[in-house]
Design a binder for these strands. Structure first.
Length: 270
DNA sequence: ATATGCACCTGTGTGC
DNA sequence: TGCACACAGGTGCATA
């Protein structure tokens, strides 16, 4: 569920209370995530100070004072929240990190598609394969051209391919394509230069606006303080099949591409 | 190399 | 009310 804007919102909400804090204890209540939480996580984290929180694509990186990095991915249903030290664990609270200054940092993830692991940054092979981050490291028009040239895959599937572009998921791929006026199923290599330019601008605009509004909260996404986002109110097409397009009134369609629901306006998108 | 299908999980909504 | 089924913000592996 969390895509770039939700992960970035989480990152920003944690900065004030977590950067500079020291980890005093770690409890792994459920190690069976996408990959098992390493058994030595608690030992390696105890006593460390968090020096920075960064984001690459959908990954959160907690830099530690021993040069290692705690990597967190929220998967489909994960969240990181701050809680008072007296809080009792809730269902699906899998990793609880006690900080000095009276705060718990809690990783909750009902579907357990998330990831928590620790390594030197250079050893984090999850990061090595990622494409450019469309906000921090936006591709130029030429780079977009290189990314899409000769590719027969639907442009929407390409937008969501983390090796080509890191951070875009199902919501923002659909929304950006609506703003750009391009159908999700279009072969990536068939987009004209003008369409690519519109898409690049649309993607940036949609992601920036979503970050400004704290991301999209469909059912359960919350930031580090438990606050919902507001971008879902502005979804033009995502999960709106059967409803009228807000721009032209045509009925929004749903179509499955590479196993993921895609939504588009048949009149506004070509 | 490239594209698709499915598995991995739990929760929720829908229709019967 | 219960039950079966479809579907959900993601990713990785097997398969053509």
């Amino acid at each position: 569920m969390p895509e770039l804007p939700e992960v970035e919102t989480t990152r920003r909400s944690l900065l004030a209370d977590v950067v500079g804090a020291r980890i005093v204890a770690v409890t792994v209540r459920e190690p069976r995530l996408r990959r098992p939480v390493p058994a030595d996580l608690a030992d390696r984290l105890r006593g460390r100070r968090v020096t920075a929180i960064e984001r690459t694509g959908k990954y959160l990186l907690f830099a530690l004072d021993d040069g290692r990095t705690l990597l967190v991915h929220l998967g489909m249903s994960g969240s990181l929240c701050l809680a008072p030290p007296t809080a009792s664990p809730a269902r699906h609270d899998h990793v609880v990190i006690a900080l000095d200054r009276d705060r718990l940092l809690v990783f909750n993830d009902p579907r357990r598609f998330g990831l928590v692991r620790l390594a030197a940054r250079a050893e984090l092979d999850e990061l090595r394969a990622l494409g450019p981050d469309p906000l921090a490291n936006a591709p130029s028009l030429d780079a977009w051209r290189a990314l899409t040239r000769h590719r027969r895959t639907p442009i929407k599937t390409l937008l969501m391919d983390q090796r080509r572009l890191a951070g875009v998921g199902n919501i923002y791929a659909n929304e950006a394509l609506f703003v750009a006026g391009v159908r999700p199923r279009r072969r990536a290599g068939s987009l004209t230069r003008a369409e690519l330019a519109r898409l690049a601008a649309a993607l940036r605009a949609v992601l920036e606006r979503a970050v400004d509004l704290g991301g999209s909260s469909i059912s359960d996404y919350r930031d580090g303080y438990g606050n919902a986002g507001y971008f879902q109110i502005h979804h033009a097409v995502y999960d709106r099949h059967g409803q009228p397009c807000g721009r032209c009134g045509a009925t929004i369609k749903r179509q499955v591409l590479a196993g993921r629901s895609s939504f588009y306006c048949p009149r506004c998108q070509r």
